[in-house]
Design a binder for these strands. Structure first.
Length: 309
DNA sequence: TTTCCAATAT
DNA sequence: AATATTGGAA
């Protein structure tokens, strides 16, 4: 059929192949554009300003060999696995700055588990002593920075404030917007002491040492936790904001990790007609809802069982 | 000097 | 909306 054309091509391609080749200069920018900052981070590439418009003409050899292709099979985290360990490299000539310091780490995503740990830490510290640094230390999550905590704490305080406002005096219902907004915070039980007004609850009696088992890097956490996130949706939909009276559950169970003395429990007397909303771990195993994907620059699809908005 | 914290930026 | 960054204050 098209043999003639193909033959023509064969006659000519060799003569022209060279001129059609892009020059190295043309190639570089292209390849750099194709590597998103996140990818660069994930693969530990030293291309700090790649997408920042801050290209350093230092050509790197070629396509970087992915250290661990295994990461691709994972549904999620395109995040770097070791920011600190990847020093060296460009140290040699002419004052190249260390990428390790310049490198920006990926956004931390506060999974329900992580937030849970946060809340526990704050609870143990007492709200007065709960400042970012201390919280961070208590949480002892590898890779978690003080700023991470500070930022989260800031928002959490706002959340608590709102809760207080709506608290006892028959306040109106939580606006749909807020409810939708605060899914994360709703995922962890709010220690009642947080909502108390008057004389702020003092710091907990004693705080021996870090009680929580050190977690690993955020990425790993998120990865590992993807599976568990389901239960969080359960809790969420069981809905604990009843009506007035600050009808919140104080279900303070710790299924994730071992947790020593949680003494500050002042919860409702057992046997008070109170629905146990958070059954023991064994009970809530069901439900194979797909958790919202919060990572991978994709969209976040949040399954909604309730047509509430 | 470090840390907090509210405001602001992405 | 969620997290990061900033900048003044303690």
């Amino acid at each position: 059929m098209r043999e003639e054309e193909e033959e023509e091509e064969e006659n000519n391609w060799f003569a022209r192949w060279e001129e059609q080749l892009p020059s190295p200069e043309e190639l570089m920018p292209l390849s750099q554009t194709l590597i998103t900052p996140e990818l660069a981070l994930a693969f530990d590439i030293n291309a700090a300003g790649a997408a920042n418009g801050n290209l350093n003409p230092a050509h790197f050899p070629q396509a970087p060999a992915p250290p661990q292709p295994a990461a691709c099979s994972h549904p999620a985290p395109p995040l770097s696995s070791d920011f600190e360990s990847s020093a060296s490299a460009a140290a040699g000539s002419g004052g190249a700055d260390e990428p390790a310091r310049t490198l920006k780490r990926p956004r931390l995503v506060w999974t329900p588990q992580l937030h849970k740990r946060f809340v526990d830490a704050v609870a143990h510290l007492g709200i007065k002593n709960a400042v970012p640094k201390t919280i961070m230390q208590l949480m002892s999550v590898d890779g978690l920075t003080r700023e991470n905590v500070a930022s989260h704490l800031q928002k959490y305080r706002l959340y608590l404030k709102r809760m207080q406002g709506l608290g006892t005096s028959g306040g109106g219902p939580i606006s749909a917007a807020d409810a939708a907004t605060d899914q994360l915070f709703a995922s962890a039980p709010v220690p009642h002491q947080f909502l108390s007004r008057g004389p702020a609850a003092g710091p907990e009696p004693f705080l021996p040492y870090v009680q929580t088992a050190p977690l690993q890097h955020p990425q790993q956490i998120t990865a590992a936790m993807q599976q568990q996130q389901q239960q969080y949706y359960h809790q969420r939909h069981l809905g604990h904001f009843g009506s007035s009276t600050g009808g919140f559950d104080h279900g303070f169970l710790n299924r994730g990790m071992p947790q020593p003395a949680m003494h500050q429990m002042v919860g409702p007397p057992p046997g008070t007609g109170f629905l146990q909303l958070t059954p023991p771990p064994a009970a809530l195993s069901v439900d194979d809802l797909e958790p919202a994907r919060r990572e991978d620059g994709g969209e976040r699809k949040v399954l909604t069982l309730f047509p509430d908005r």
